[in-house]
Design a protein around this nucleic acid. Sequence first.
RNA 1: GCCAGUUUAGCUCAGUGGUAGAGCAUCCGAUUUGUAAUCGGACGGUCGUCGGUUCAAAUCCGACAACUGGCUCCA
Length: 668
Amino acid sequence: MFGGGAPDGRAEPISAMQTDDRKTLEQRHQMSELERLRHSCAHVMATAILRLWPDAQFAYGPPVETGFYYDLECSHRITPEDFERIEAEMKQEIKANHVFERIAVSREQAVVDASSGRLGGLAERPGNPSKFKLDLLGAIPEGEPISYYRNGDFLDLCAGPHVMRTGNIGAFKLTSVASAYYKGDEKNPQLQRVYGTAFKNKTQLEEWLKMQEEAKKRDHRKLGQEMGLFFMDAEYTGPGMPLWLPNGTVLVEELEKLAKETEFAAGYVRVRTPHLAKEKMYLTSGHLPYYAESMFPPMTLLEGDDPAKRPLLREKFQEALHDGAELTPDKIDTFLERAYQIFKAEGLEGDRYYLKAMNCPHHHRIFAAEPRSYRDLPLRMAEYGCCYRYEQSGELFGLMRVRSLNMNDAHIYCTEDQFAAEFAAVNEMYLKYFKIFGLEKYIMRFSTHAASGLGKKYVNEPALWLKTEDMVRRVLQQSGINYVEVPNEAAFYGPKIDVQVWSAIGREFTIATNQVDFAVPARFGLEYRDRDNTMRTPLCIHRAPLGTHERFVGFLIEHYAGNFPLWLAPEQVRVLPVTEQQLDYARALVAELRGAMVRAEFEFSNDKLQGRIQRAEAARAHHILVVGQKEQDAVAVAVRIHGKGQQGVRPRAEVVADILQSIRERRS
RNA sequence: GCCAGUUUAGCUCAGUGGUAGAGCAUCCGAUUUGUAAUCGGACGGUCGUCGGUUCAAAUCCGACAACUGGCUCCA
């Protein structure tokens, strides 16, 4: 029976479990040599686990990008402390150098073996059938050959391919243990997933382990703390709601400046909208029925606007504080609980307000605020809007997945004729940004709808879906941008393009988005008067090339490993006088730079120059300008660049001019 | 939300049932400095929170919270 099965305690029949996409035999045989090795290592790991805990039942054990895993169910809860024992057993199996023997079988024979517990086992296990293997057998289409692979005693249902012998596995290491739903479906039981990695030889494994260590140092959460960029104050501000510290605020504001300049040049106008809106807004936009669970719960105001009830509100607050004691922090929770109950009993409930989870409805209302003509289009409305989304607690992840986010948002209202040019221009803007940040590895995911989701996941407009998807596809093809098309992942109001990037430490992120909306403008009754004097509904393009500040800054931290280019660096220049004799000269230099909006600091402490250099480097000040008597006499500075060492002594005016130019050009 | 792990000073971490520690940071003093750490001293913790076991809990047990690794999700 399944350990953590259905909520009511009954085990679900495996046959009822949802199946996912299977790899075809052809795809399997395209496995690289390294993937074969890793997949084989998964079998070896299963062998070892069975030696230690013979009741283990195995499900899937594929190679993955960084190694392999095998999902299993077992009476013993495997922890990292067990790794040493498992690895010791694995080494034995490798040393034995068993052949990976392929055995073709009939479906009938496979069912018999699985029922006896032989598959994914070292021997027959009466009363403990290979239930996952039985389920997998059922998913193999009629006519497809069925095969086992055997290494020593371990026999597994497996299409392969494998390496020749267990001895071919050069070096391996178990890395972590996690849990995973069987077949990735929430409704299925959770299995234990043991992760490992394997390489041809020990050198490659060690290199990989070293890289992992390096990656840890670039983690944006670690660097964010070290560099004073942001602070997660879960206890007071709330989980997933970063507080931007001064250094992080610099990054945010530089990005905003970049966006404002770029958007201004591209003919956008800017707007600003509140963080709250009435329930009607999101009922109209359609977000509440589709995404209510992802929004913060509503705030309830007093009934209507009845001013007579306002004193009552205060009175009831006082009542909740009935003991008249001071409201010290430790009493706040109890107080709120009490106040809430009293309010409810008094019927002090009225309009419901929601924190905005997206800016579009607000922008739609701005569009509707005055009559529009075809001459006004395209209308490109931009805002760095602050939104709030109630992400599930387990999904929060540093700056990458948060509950309060600032979007590089804009909505472009246009006619059908204008659509292609506008959509292409947005894609061009993406590429311009990527160039500034030296971003080379990215892919555009074009998400389309699925007919089965119409009316549920997607607005029920089959013809419009096909039409707009075709429009987007044509723009993509004409611009020659690399893209993949993914069915059944569109937004509820239209197809979209997400830009996937990889941070320097290999994390994959959706950093930007570009979406078509053919549904919501109509729900808000948006229209413009066309050339022929008829009223038409505009198309809307939602776009966010820089995504959110939170995610983009998080990405940049890892991308640059905290070593930002001059224009982004929180501290652009640190001036270090060698002795007290150069204090005035140094101060004047800082004043000149700050007068030109350069983030320049000055340090003269009791420490030796060496110590101050060390601290300036640790603080990642981009330019370190050392001024001693020689420099002062020559009106020069000794330049040192963070991470690059000394650059020599140069005339002061020249250095200042270079700094200003590098910042202006946003050089990388 | 689910499974598992973690939580000791501002930061990095040691401390396996018997008087809470180190380095860095901070503050004070000395040192006046030429390219990645001058020297000395002081300050700093209800060991995540609440409860339990025990003569005695950072340490053992339980609940909750946050974070981490995954899964699911991601307008």
